[in-house]
Design a protein around this nucleic acid. Structure first.
Lengths: 142, 142
DNA sequence: CTATTATAGACTCATTGAGTCTGTAATAGC
DNA sequence: GCTATTACAGACTCAATGAGTCTATAATAG
């Protein structure tokens, strides 16, 4: 029962996007050096975020990634589900009945509670606060 | 982000214990045949439940497992944490600071929400309802 | 002493996470 | 149209973990 490391990176990356001036485009190279991980690996994470519709990408010499639009509504759940998927965390599978299992029902209710909380928490809440790990690094915008 | 299969078995087993007459002792052999899985594997799960203090075991010819005492307070969270452990599902680890990460804070809050819900849901709620997969099998109590 | 039960640990196998490497497609500027 | 720069896709490696088996040991009742 653990979140993947990719979710961690995705959240930090998206929080960085939100803290940026609106409409800023930034490449994977800079994002990777900021977070101190390989560009190709971060690229795969960013591609998932693109496919989820959270950011958009443009190739080419002045390309990169930028936030798609609505910073204010961007929730933790959006980012997490973009990486982890939307499958349920618990699957009964005892015998044959996946539907009639009462335990399954409770677990799905619990997961629903969790998702509603994560949907209510927006990234922009933290954007104005602080990104302390940023000040210790070189300026990402050249 | 998935619960282990062992948690599934543990929940079904504990629900079975709760639905039993109070103080009933039952061996791993019968529990295993009911759920159609190997006794040795289920044994490891039961041992975890013992160490968590949810059930108690007595070896010997008339031994087996039985519920420790308080059916009414036995929550989903108790069983889940007995198997999955109590470690947090999200761990920041960006750079060096595990404590000052705002994302980490939110994720821990979310997990807290989930745990409180799972703590409020008791197994006894389902005990009187139905265990439909039981009626399709032979009588577990010989 | 023996049968029955729980417990522990080593072991196998398949899956998944995490990350790298290489190549391909698309875009801007010349 | 050529080139540099970027995103994208897929194959690949490595380690860790889940899932389950097997064997041996300890404890209890008769």
């Amino acid at each position: 029962m653990k979140y993947s490391q990719a979710t961690n990176y995705a959240l930090h990356t998206m929080l960085y996007f939100v803290s940026l001036p609106a409409g800023t485009t930034i490449g994977v190279q800079q994002l990777a050096t900021i977070q101190r991980l390989s560009p190709t690996y971060l690229s795969k994470i960013l591609t998932k975020l693109v496919k989820a519709g959270l950011i958009e990408s443009t190739p080419g010499i002045h390309g990169g990634y930028k936030l798609v639009k609505n910073n204010a509504d961007l929730s933790f759940l959006d980012v997490i589900q973009a990486i982890e998927g939307t499958a349920t965390a618990f699957h009964c599978g005892a015998g044959l009945q996946h539907d009639s299992c009462l335990i399954q029902q409770v677990m799905m209710d619990a997961e629903q509670q969790l998702e509603e909380y994560l949907k209510a928490r927006k990234l922009v809440e933290l954007a104005e606060g602080a990104m302390p790990w940023l000040s210790t690094l070189e300026d990402p915008v050249r």
